[in-house]
Amino acid sequence: MPDGAAGDDRIEAAVRAVLGSLSGAMTATEAALLAELEALGREVARAKSEIAALRVEDINDSHIPAATDELDAVVEHTAEATNQILDCCEKLEALQAQLSGEAAEVVGTAVTRIYEACSFQDITGQRIGKVVAALKAIEARVAVATAGFARPDAPPVPAPEGEAASQTEGQRLANGPQLPPAAASQADIDRLLASFD
C-alpha cells in the first residue's frame, strides 16, 4: 500500500505516465475521467496515510486503559464515600437507642431512607462496569478496522474476544441495570410474578 507522501508521488507519477502516453489519442471526456481518477487516487492515499497516523496502539495502550482506570477510581471513591455515610448512619442508630418517642422515630426513619439511597453505589458501579465493557469492545473493533492500514512497525492486533461458549444462563442474562425509561418497576415485577400463580 502507498504510505503518505511517497504513496501520493507514486500514484501521481503513474497517472501522469498514463496521461502522457495517451495524450495524443485522448478525447476530452477521457482526459476528464483520468483527471478524476488521479484526484481519487490522491484522496485514497491521503485517507490511508491519516488512518495509519492514528496510532491505534496508543488507543489500546494508553487511552482506553486510562479511561477505565478513571472509571474504576470513580467506583472506588463512591464506595469509600458510601461507607463513610454508612458509618454515620450506624452511629445515629446507636444514638437512636438513647432517644424516645417522636425523636427516635424521626432518626430511625431518616436512617432507613439513607440506607435506601446508598444503594445508588451498587447501581452506579454496575452502570460504570457496562461503560468499561463498551470501551473495551470499541477498542477491539477499532483495532481490527485499522489493522490493514497500520504502520509496518505497529504491534499485531489481537482478535476481538468472542462470546464465551460455556456461559451459564445466569451469566448470559446478567446485563446490569436498564436505563430508567426501559427499566421495570417493582410493581411491574410483582404483576409478572403474580401471573405465574
Binding site: E116, D122, P177, A184, S185, I189, L192, L193
Partner: peptide, 29 residues
C-alpha cells in the same frame, strides 16, 4: 437485583425463586 428485564424475572421464576426485588429498593419492599 438490578436485572429488571422480563426474561430475567421469568428465568428466575422458572428456576424456583420465591420472590424478586428490583434495585434500587426500599426497606418496606
Amino acid at each position: 437485583t438490578a436485572e429488571s428485564k422480563t426474561e430475567n424475572v421469568v428465568a428466575a421464576k422458572q428456576a424456583g425463586v420465591s420472590n424478586y426485588i428490583v434495585k434500587p429498593f426500599n426497606a418496606e419492599t
